[in-house]
Amino acid sequence: MYELFFRKFNEKVPLTHEEEEMIKTYLTPKKLRRKQYLLQEGDVCKSIAFVEKGALREYSIAENGNEQIIQFAIEGWTISDLYSFLTGEPATYNIDAVEDSELVLLSKSAHEELLRKLPKYETYLRLQVTGAYLALQKRLTSVNTLSPEERYANFTQLYPELVQRFPQHMIASHMGLTPETLSRARRKIKSK
């Protein structure tokens, strides 16, 4: 149930058996079926979700109704509206399951208590947030400086599994492209 969660945790910060047992008491196991929401825009994001199994996406809806995907998450990844989680302000993003998923949730109160009780959790979290920040920076650079073909090539190289797991129109949305532009970019890459 928490196997991957602790494997990833231990990769960053090794835990003793006792520490693992202590952390377990704070975790919420949650199964989500495909198309179910974990979070809807307007609600406060009350937990950070770690994906044990399955696939989710996080997106906002533009005024014209278009979905803009800002993040994907598959096994071993973490997903939340961090701004809402940390500030208690209503979320500006939606998170839903693209496949049936098994999650490990950390609620705000569990998160705060673990921060107080276990310095290793703070280290784990710092590494998580740093990683997410670097990925975000990379993505911004990619959107601002690369051509659609370069962006797609870059993305498939970095995240080959995401290309397999998520439909093309979601990948396009994540890259800030229309599905048509993405499919042109893919054709260009193939013909090279």
Binding site: M1, T25, P29, S107
Partner: peptide, 8 residues
């Protein structure tokens, strides 16, 4: 259900 009712 103990295991899956954790924190709920």
């Amino acid at each position: 259900i103990k295991e899956v009712a954790n924190q709920k």
